[in-house]
Amino acid sequence: MGSVKIRVKDTNLYYGNHHALKNINMDIYDKSVTALIGPSGCGKSTFLRCLNRMNDLIPNVRIDGEIQIAGNDINKYDVILLRKKVGMVFQKPNPFPMSIYENIAYGPRIHGTKNRSKLDNIVEKSLREAALWDEVKDRLKSNAMGLSGGQQQRLCIARTIAVEPEILLMDEPTSALDPASTMKIEDLMENLKKQYTVIIVTHNMQQAGRISDYAAFFLNGEIIEYDKTEKIFYKPMDKRTEDYITGRFG
């Protein structure tokens, strides 16, 4: 068990009057993959978006409790620094409508890297880490929208890595992809967790089983059970977790 990277204490979230996250307490460990599982609408994506304060963008959202990253309250971070530290990959690949190179260079540029050769290095390094370099190295100048869905998603991962985050949030990153692309991304996760703390929301039980070290089962805004993945999958404590894992509902 590694050290605690993110500590979530008594966190509640309300959309207007709707109590969407109920009393969440969770320690997320450094350099590991934590999977958030549960039926649609159970609050797992909402929880993920708390961690980089993307919920700030939605009006009428109220959050209480405390979330710490490396011991510091995330509300005390400048939101820009927080989001640099906590990268996010979305459900639908969302490359910007510009070249592959520009997509990766966008992040470092807005954070102040101007030097061309430095940017070249970042682009190559990020694309290599995202296992995309060999496929695109000859067409870095072509539009990212021309890539396949799976390539676009790896590009989005590369784009996120390019700003050197410590934590990677992934919101169902493979749900819009075909099985072959999904496999590539899952393989990639193995490598990513050596450097980053990865938190992934997934609807795919086999995926959670294959790639995660820890798993949290969400139901109706609560964490029902959170433990090592093998425990959640083979020896769940709660009947509801077992029912969900074995496909009895969801």
């Binding site: 980089n52 993307m54 963008l57 820009i80 620094l81 927080l82 989001r83 640099k84 990268g87 996010m88 979305f90 639908k92 969302n94 490359p95 910007f96 409508p97 966008y106 992040g107 807005i110 954070h111 989005c156 784009r159 996120t160 700003v163």
Partner: peptide, 21 residues
């Protein structure tokens, strides 16, 4: 698309940077 905005903001871009670029 909203996804462009989210993608940019999630990288730590400010609102103004997102609008301009």
């Amino acid at each position: 698309p909203k996804s462009y905005r989210e993608g940019s903001l999630a990288l730590g871009a400010t609102k103004l940077q997102t609008i301009r670029k």
